[in-house]
Simulated assay, not measured.
Amino acid sequence: MSCPQFHFAVVGYYIATLVYVSGMDLSNVTDEKVKNLRDFGPFYLTLWNWGLHLLYFFMHCINHTLQKMPMKISTSLRRMMGQMTNYLFCALVFPLTIYVSSTFWIMFAYDRELLYPRALDAASPPWFNHVMHTSILPVALLELALHRHRFPPPRTACLSLAALLAAYGLAMTYVYFRYNVALYPLYPMLNWTQRGLFFAVSVAECSVFYLLGEKLNTLCWGNRIKSVHGEKQQ
């Protein structure tokens, strides 16, 4: 499968999922955790990660379309979008995807009620959970294998990850204090020191996943890839 075919297929897959989700009827649910998922869905990290996926692949589809346009019109725009999508995937999409998927399934195995309550099974088909938390991982790995990437300096990428997770932490805190809703049952059990520690550990984990992506990229593409700061990756 070529990169354009893969990118268009993923966008179609995500849009079909989005259409399905928008048609889900959760108006009559009584479980408090399911109500939170219904009313505060955009504040969950899974949705942030999924949105980054959709943005990344949609931008690639635009770039593929621009290839059919006259060279003078599309060259500079394609170059700019190429740099943006490259950074988006390497610094955010890939490490966050591994973090979201691995953390979800570890917590699911420990106590699924912390993240994905059983009451939600009655309102959604079994495959929906895998669309949001499982398929994102092979999609990211396939993208890494099919499309060459230039990984930015680790410090820059890790700062971007920290900024994203900090923004998410602020959003989660806002929901908790503004609406008295804990998106995750664990949140109110932690004091501020523990929350800060949890944030630091999350950033560290995502940074490790970034380095893993860089190593896998080198494994797939070898010395044909150069980093964005001009040094050849070994």
Rank of each mutant, 00 (worst) to 15 (best):
C158S: 05
M59W: 08
E32L: 13
M1V: 13
Y179K: 11
V29Y: 04
L96C: 11
L77Y: 10
P188C: 10
V34G: 00
S2L: 06
P117F: 07
Y184K: 05
T30Y: 06
Y184C: 06
C3T: 14
L120K: 01
Y44M: 10
L47V: 15
F58N: 05
T75R: 15
S74P: 07
P188R: 09
L26Q: 04
L164F: 05
F6Y: 15
N129D: 07
L52Q: 08
N191L: 09
F151T: 01
L18W: 13
T156L: 13
S102W: 08
W48H: 10
N49V: 12
G222H: 09
A163P: 01
E143K: 03
W105E: 01
T46L: 06
S207Y: 05
V21E: 08
L190Q: 12
Y20V: 00
K226A: 11
C206F: 01
F128Q: 00
M84K: 11
L159W: 00
K232C: 12
A166V: 08
F6Q: 03
V11Q: 08
P126T: 04
G169A: 08
I106H: 05
V203M: 05
M107Y: 07
V21D: 05
V34F: 02
Y99E: 02
V203G: 02
W50G: 03
T46G: 09
R38Q: 11
G222F: 10
F40P: 01
Y20Q: 00
A167H: 02
P188E: 10
A182P: 04
H147S: 12
V139S: 03
E32K: 13
G196C: 12
V139Q: 02
P95T: 05
